[in-house]
Amino acid sequence: MSRGLYAYAITRDQPVDLAGPWLIGHRGLALVVAEVELARFAGLEFEEPSEDSPLAVLARYHDAVVRSVFRHAPVLPLRFGTVLDSVDAAVRLLSARHEEVSAWLSRVEGRQEWGVKVRAAQREPAHLDDVSGTAYLTLRRQRLVDADLARRAAATLHQALRDRADESVCRDLTRDLLLEGAYLVDAGHEEEFHAELGRLTAELGLSVEITGPWPPYSFTKVEFADA
């Protein structure tokens, strides 16, 4: 184990200046690759998510290469840590999966991914020392009603955004998240998407975190084999 062919993404075969990585082209499709020292990937650990950890540096670079391609052409990001056997292997893959890959590239062409997170509003801790039983129950009911309203508002937002996106996915929610959605939005609908997002956020009084634009990471969950 010394050096290997790290693959970042699949795209259309066209000139892209990537300062390092290069393209292995085959019948109009291409794999974006670079020769890497495999030792850098062995024994990677996820400890604390600090920017200078080896995993963070490699993941950021992977994302940067994918983004560079994404600015010029439709892209299918590959999962982190994809290393190919050889240039021949890359060509074999593009040859065997030509139609499928072409269809996926068309599907994401001209579209960007946007992430939308809605968090539950922060509330002051309740001081229960001087609270009567009735007041406590009233407070509790009020909080449950508020929480339910916030959940419904988040669902309304998701519905509206989904209608303005070509595709959408929702992630599993953790405790303080009311919505974590990814939306694949066509360039032609982007203005409308963001206008609606802004309007509903204000109207529903939600605390929203928007990330993006991303290459279509969340919309390319597929497996390709060479045969």
Partner: peptide, 28 residues
């Protein structure tokens, strides 16, 4: 223009196309 580290890690590690079969080498 890149996202927060958590957002980036989640996408880069957990999303995207997976290549399976003999052509891929498992390093990570």
């Amino acid at each position: 223009r890149s996202g927060s580290l958590a957002d980036t890690l989640e996408r880069v590690l957990d999303k995207g196309v997976v290549i399976v079969g003999d052509i891929a080498v498992c390093v990570v």
